[in-house]
Design a protein around this nucleic acid. Sequence first.
DNA 1: ATTAAAATTTAAGTATGCTTAAATATGTGC
DNA 2: GCACATATTTAAGCATACTTAAATTTTAAT
Lengths: 220, 220
Amino acid sequence: MANYSSIAVENFIKAIYKYESRDGADTKSGTIATELGITHAAATDMARKLAAKNMVDYEKYKELKLTPAGKKLAVHVVRKHRLWETFLHQVFGLSMHEIHKEAELLEHATSDFLLDKISEYLGNPQFDPHGDPIPTKEGKVETSQASLSMVYAELNTSYKICRLRSSDEEFFDFCQANDMRLGTALTIKKRYPKTRMLEAELNHKTLLIHYDLAQAIHVE
Amino acid sequence: MANYSSIAVENFIKAIYKYESRDGADTKSGTIATELGITHAAATDMARKLAAKNMVDYEKYKELKLTPAGKKLAVHVVRKHRLWETFLHQVFGLSMHEIHKEAELLEHATSDFLLDKISEYLGNPQFDPHGDPIPTKEGKVETSQASLSMVYAELNTSYKICRLRSSDEEFFDFCQANDMRLGTALTIKKRYPKTRMLEAELNHKTLLIHYDLAQAIHVE
DNA sequence: ATTAAAATTTAAGTATGCTTAAATATGTGC
DNA sequence: GCACATATTTAAGCATACTTAAATTTTAAT
């Protein structure tokens, strides 16, 4: 049984995957529930069901962990998501804030056969428009990239933007207005922890950026 | 309520639409059930639910009829389906027998916004690769085309193929082997009603075609 | 016009994926 | 170490979209 996973299952597994690889975050049922916009009760329910299907390791009150089978599914869905984002951006010219929502739907309606065609068409890209690595067909995810949020990066060090992790229109308005793209060089000059702002120099300008926004900008 | 329809509802409505516009066919719950691969009971159930939502006119033991709202939804889903088929064929080079299955999934995961982009990208095509008309954004469907299955066409009359309505691989193998495409000229020479075969002349060859296959070939 | 066959509907039940409300466990402050 | 706030789980219930099995209606044959 179960060579097919429902949309709800795919999204649940994907949410665990997302928070597992995020430091400072946990994968308790409440976190997943909030991420998915469902109640804690529903998340607990799903956790038990997926534990029975050997997709998730689940002990009451503990964090959820993906089993190898769960991780395999998560990576596969992420591959679909990121390939669609790349495709929508490159082929239809959808903007950065538009691609996520559409990919969120398409990723659950894409056969492996079609996925191969998309990847091929794009020349088997390694990164999506946000700078996130696209898992290979075999399930390998590029992890070498030691990316780091601006919030935690060192002062007075020369960095380049390597990821813009957001799907918010205002965020990308800001990026565009200040010529911030993947590859743009920047240096962090100062931090104001109380107001949660940092001062960065890029494109010969000095910018004050709030941590909430800087969080989404990764550098290396 | 209900600006969103589930996949099950979209498929049910689409099935009624398909059989409404097919002469020699009825739209009783059993026909729809068979089309969708569900039990008669399930079809009756859905018919009652959709009647309550004013998508379908339903009287017990009678044929199902789409209301204006139901037809609008059906046409919209058909537009998604045919635009995706066109896209998959033209952009990824998927073959005729492959496009249906994929479009069947994608049509339920496509926002109106994305649909516009697809249509625009393709130059707002009027016909899909099968020769079926693509409904406009406003819901108009080209009906002028007096297409007619080969099975019912007149003898010794010069026709052109205008539709190849199948998603079967062998069907398209046969078409390719005999250079039968949209636009190909042909003449029907003779019928053998007992064996349900017809003799057709095209590309300077004489072909014996079974009714079951000829059914899918429309001419004008 | 009857009657048997075929189709349709009803009834009862199931799995999925949710909800709300109550109960229980965890962990933090003091 | 205890009490309380917070988080999680359990319990009960609901909507959707199906199933099987039985009852009913239609239809088609004679």
